[in-house]
Computed example of a mutant assay.
Amino acid sequence: MAQLLDDKDIDNALEGLDGWSRSGSSIIRTLALRSFPDAIALVDRVAETAEQRNHHPDIDIRWRKVTFACSTHALGGVTQLDLDLARTINELAEEQASS
């Protein structure tokens, strides 16, 4: 099972995660997409990945802005699972922007 990361490990990891920051017991990123359909398409791609991994972010959609919050709820904080998912979200967002 995943283990909670300490503050130093989270801060170090965030230095390499473009656009992500800490908010309480989660890491978050808000992305502005070109359109509402683009925002929904990104959410759909993230949902597929999250379902495969059985690790799901909290997602807030506001028109063309999408906020992802990653936290391992069962442990009450950030684990390596969250950092890995954040990296994947960044990759999917880059692919979405270039399509």
Rank of each mutant, 00 (worst) to 15 (best):
A39I: 13
A97S: 08
S23K: 12
N12G: 09
G24R: 10
E48V: 06
S98D: 07
R22D: 08
A2V: 14
I89E: 05
S98Q: 07
L81C: 02
L5Y: 14
I28W: 02
V43D: 08
R53H: 11
V46Q: 04
Q80K: 14
R34N: 00
S26M: 12
R64F: 09
A74W: 08
R22P: 10
L92S: 06
A13W: 00
A69E: 05
I27G: 05
D11K: 12
G24W: 13
L31M: 14
S21D: 07
L17S: 04
S99E: 06
L14S: 07
K65M: 07
D60W: 07
E91I: 15
R87F: 00
G77V: 00
I89T: 01
A39H: 12
G16I: 05
R62L: 07
S71E: 02
A47H: 03
R53S: 11
D38V: 14
V66I: 05
M1Y: 12
T67I: 09
T88W: 13
V43P: 09
A97D: 06
G16D: 07
L5P: 05
R29K: 06
D84Y: 09
D9R: 14
V78E: 05
L17E: 01
L85D: 03
L17W: 00
S99F: 01
R64A: 01
M1F: 14
A39C: 12
D60V: 14
Q3T: 15
L42N: 00
S21I: 10
G24A: 04
L17A: 01
A13P: 02
R45Y: 09
T79H: 02
N54W: 01
L4S: 04
L92G: 04
W63Y: 08
S26Q: 15
W20R: 14
R29F: 01
F36R: 04
G24Q: 04
L31F: 10
Q3D: 14
I40S: 07
E48M: 06
D7W: 00
T72M: 11
L85Q: 08
M1Q: 15
E51P: 05
A13H: 00
V46R: 11
T49M: 10
E91G: 06
L85S: 08
I61R: 03
F36Q: 09
S71G: 03
D60L: 10
L17Y: 01
F68D: 07
